[in-house]
Design a protein around this nucleic acid. Structure first.
Lengths: 208, 208
DNA sequence: GGGCCGACTAAGCGCTCGCTCACCTTTCGG
DNA sequence: CCGAAAGGTGAGCGAGCGCTTAGTCGGCCC
């Protein structure tokens, strides 16, 4: 998944797998619109307009407005999960791996906060089938983080009385970055990632 | 604000200040509907129906659908802020006060997660004036938490390299409880509150 | 008992929504 | 040079939206 050429300069271009070009432009426009106003407040006319096309053009590439959201959600979740798993599978002890996982997961949620907002907060607008699929992906996030924490506890590096609860808290902390992060704020995604990695190591009682 | 009789049995009835009775029933119905489906996906017919009234009845008590959201947001924020401030002004050292603040703030967000969800995630549906008013209330949350952390640092009880960043993280952690908390899940609001109080004390490096 | 006033409803207005359809261009293999 | 396929447009349909209006009903003061 990360093998494709996905960056141009230092700006991530996470939609190269969406073809043809018009379909990608529509999808990028939808991400912007959904993140700004929410799924239900966004009109198909608005999406098409941002992509420089007529309202009818949307229906050549997508069956419904909901399909757009579904595609965005699936791709977004897969990207985030990929980022998390790569870090979780890295070298070093549990503390290093947890720190790196949090750092990169947070960096993604801050840097891609428009996508992340759509992915995290518009889930309920999906129908039952699509929602079920996304929920499955989400559980894998949980499993990845819990795995590292369990490793740390087993190795005696962490002191965590409630592994499941702490896992939820760590993920919740990272995900909520998408809600409050502001591009014009004082912090870069990198800085937030480092701060949060430090905070999470404290939460799990990582030995210095 | 907390002087009124606001509990019946052990269930909070946070809307006693809304009169007359029909206006309160509409507001409670709106909270349920907004929390379930989101503001934009909720229709005035749905709200009125849940309150057992005709669609037109809504407009006798509220000028617009947005006024309903505004009222809910303001009251909800005031309640949460009240809970937080009461704990922050309590006795004991910074660690005790921070733990109690987190415990009760989290308990509120879990127990009242329908209200909290509306309050936290539907802010953008408000017009500029109403939003500005709510943002002001939110900053007071921030100030309350930051105050305790600064006290702890000054007293030498906490070890916090980045006070502002840590404040954001602590509040973010508490607020996000409203998103994931599930009444049918394994944890009570009390249990989540205690878990989170412990995690936050670790985040600020509170001396044992 | 009569008149008034606040609470509520049935009906529906004007509008915008998601989506469709008839038609127009461009591209390209044979 | 032709015909089909792919990608696009302008106009507009049916539905459902937020909200209004005209009128009904019941309680209350004189």
């Amino acid at each position: 998944m990360s093998t494709a050429q996905e960056t141009v300069g230092d700006e991530p271009q996470p939609w190269v797998e969406v073809t043809p070009d018009a379909a990608r432009r529509l999808l990028v426009a939808a991400v912007e619109a959904f993140a700004e106003r929410g799924y239900h407040a966004t009109t198909t006319r608005d999406i098409a307009g941002r992509a420089g096309m007529s309202p009818a053009a949307l229906y050549i590439h997508y069956k419904t407005k909901e399909e757009l959201l579904h595609r965005i959600s699936r791709i977004g979740h897969e990207k985030a999960l990929d980022v998390l798993r790569t870090a979780a599978a890295g070298e070093g002890g549990p503390a290093d791996r947890l720190a790196e996982a949090v750092r990169s997961f947070v960096r993604w949620h801050a840097g891609q906060h428009t996508v992340a907002r759509v992915v995290q907060y518009e889930l309920d607008a999906l129908g039952p089938d699509a929602r079920a699929e996304i929920v499955t992906l989400r559980r894998e996030n949980d499993a990845a983080v819990r795995g590292i924490i369990e490793d740390g506890v087993a190795a005696g590096d962490f002191d965590v009385p409630d592994v499941r609860g702490t896992t939820i808290a760590v993920l919740s902390l990272c995900i909520d970055v998408a809600r409050w992060f502001n591009v014009n704020g004082p912090r870069t995604p990198d800085e937030v990632g480092s701060l949060y990695a430090d905070l999470v190591l404290r939460m799990v009682g990582a030995a210095k």
